[in-house]
Design a protein around this nucleic acid. Structure first.
Ligand code: MN
Ligand code: MN
Ligand code: ZN
Ligand code: ZN
Lengths: 152, 152
DNA sequence: TTCATTTTTGTAATGATTACAGTGATAGTA
DNA sequence: TACTATCACTGTAATCATTACAAAAATGAA
């Protein structure tokens, strides 16, 4: 399984005509293996366990190269830090306002923009939704029940 | 006209139960008058011309208060800095990758998310599009023509 | 006035990202 | 093997938007 991902990473890099250097391979493999929209720092922290001498600049270097080559996409749903996604197919992101977790959704259909954007050349569409995930809705209900008991 | 906007700003603040202090009024009036999605710094630079002692912290204070009260919305289409929008009706934003200008669009209908997000409580939807505005498409065409002439 | 509360200011800290210069590895060539 | 050019990688410093915090100023009721 680990082999598959790193082989896929190597192939992706070669297809774009860039050398699959050790760090590039590690970063891209990590993104393929972890479709959880990690931040640059999360990637760095994880890979540092293996590559003791890793520098954060190298992670940023790899990531901005991948972005330029359209191997990965950046996700700016969390306004603090940029996240990275090796799934480049068009899909939307939902972030839970309570637990901050990010979920993918893939039915992002026919936005019928009508005439409004007819003269604009649209190259990329991003869908960011915010709300409460099922688990956090549950928690909130329990809290309300608890508070109601206390106040009565 | 200026009067109208500042009166509207005052009313909006009073309706939310907060005091329409001078700076809050100025910031909110500015946002109502300038639906161009200004950054905190742009607001600061403009208002500073009138209020010589204005501090940037005050602008941020006002803006985060407005966000909390849902008087304005933040727009994070430009990954560098947050922009602010006094138009809180649901609408999307398009940013031109060349001239960086931001355009509103309002036909953002029925995203038919199907079952996928059924169990999620969606509180806000953001639509960020990127591409080329009509003017910049034109410029690009001209450049191509120019380069073609040069190379032939 | 007095005093508490709120608003505003100024400066310092934070933290993600970028700039940059130097070091190390690699590969081709003589 | 030595030389050299290019590229990958590292470490540190700079940048810059935003936030934290404490002090000063304004407000407004008693
Ligand atoms: Mn995703
Ligand atoms: Mn808008
Ligand atoms: Zn949640
Ligand atoms: Zn443009």
């Amino acid at each position: 399984m680990a082999l598959i991902y790193s082989e896929k990473a190597a192939k992706m890099l070669l297809e774009k005509g860039i050398k699959p250097s050790p760090i590039r391979l590690k970063v891209l493999t990590f993104l393929l293996k972890n479709p959880t929209h990690p931040t640059a720092d999360e990637i760095y922290q994880e890979l540092q366990k293996e590559i003791l001498t890793l520098s954060k600049t190298s992670v940023y270097n790899a990531l901005s190269l991948f972005l330029r080559l359209n191997l990965v996409k950046s996700v700016n749903i969390d306004e603090k830090e940029t996240r990275y996604d090796a799934n480049i197919e068009e899909h939307g992101h939902f972030q839970c306002l309570s637990c901050k977790q990010i979920y993918d959704f893939f039915h992002v259909p026919r936005l019928e923009e009508k005439e409004e954007l007819n003269d604009f050349m649209i190259k990329e569409k991003r869908y960011y939704y915010y709300g409460l995930c099922p688990e956090c809705q549950q928690k909130e209900e329990n809290n309300e029940k608890f508070n109601w008991n206390k106040n009565s």
